[in-house]
Design a protein around this nucleic acid. Structure first.
Lengths: 81, 81
DNA sequence: CAGGGATATCGGATTTTTCAATATCGGATT
DNA sequence: AATCCGATATTGAAAAATCCGATATCCCTG
């Protein structure tokens, strides 16, 4: 593991916020992705990591441009550049 | 697994291109990240997935803005929006 | 075409992920 | 403020992915 679990919670929180803004439940998002509801819960709570392609897929299922959320996550981690 | 292994090769290829552009070897990047060289190889060849935070960390070790590479990956997957 | 630096692969131990079942939360309604 | 109930979190054991040192292979350069 290259990254502490705690930091993944930030990714989960961004994805949760995006889902809630889209007014979609975990159940409904899970259905759209063909996964169980616990799948959504586990990454939103930072229990599970989200890989790059999954993020694109998840946000697509919410009709959100993944680049916007990636920027948001990126800016949470104060590093250069 | 939400995503086919084949698609992860695209992510790996983008990260490899970024590394080569930066004129850094797998060994050197591995050293910067505190990981073995086989770690770099495994994701560049699509054997392993790259999570969102890892991608930021990897590209930071190369002094590259992860948002640029994310855009590149994003555009490889023809979906709306 | 040989040498050597760079990258890929192997294999078994370890860690993470998975998913159905179940528990808990939270807020709306009366 | 107690109940209901839809939404979310947690559990646990099986399955899958990852880890990493050792080693093989690639491929560039002289």
């Amino acid at each position: 593991m290259l990254i502490a679990p705690r930091e993944h919670a930030i990714v989960g929180a961004c994805l949760e916020r995006a889902r809630r803004n889209a007014k979609v439940t975990q159940q409904e998002l899970a259905r759209r992705l063909g996964k169980p509801q616990s799948f959504i819960s586990s990454y939103e709570t930072g229990q599970r990591r989200v890989d790059v392609l999954e993020m694109i897929l998840i946000l697509h299922a919410l009709n959100i441009d993944a680049r916007l959320i990636f920027d948001e996550i990126y800016l949470h981690f104060p590093r250069t550049p």
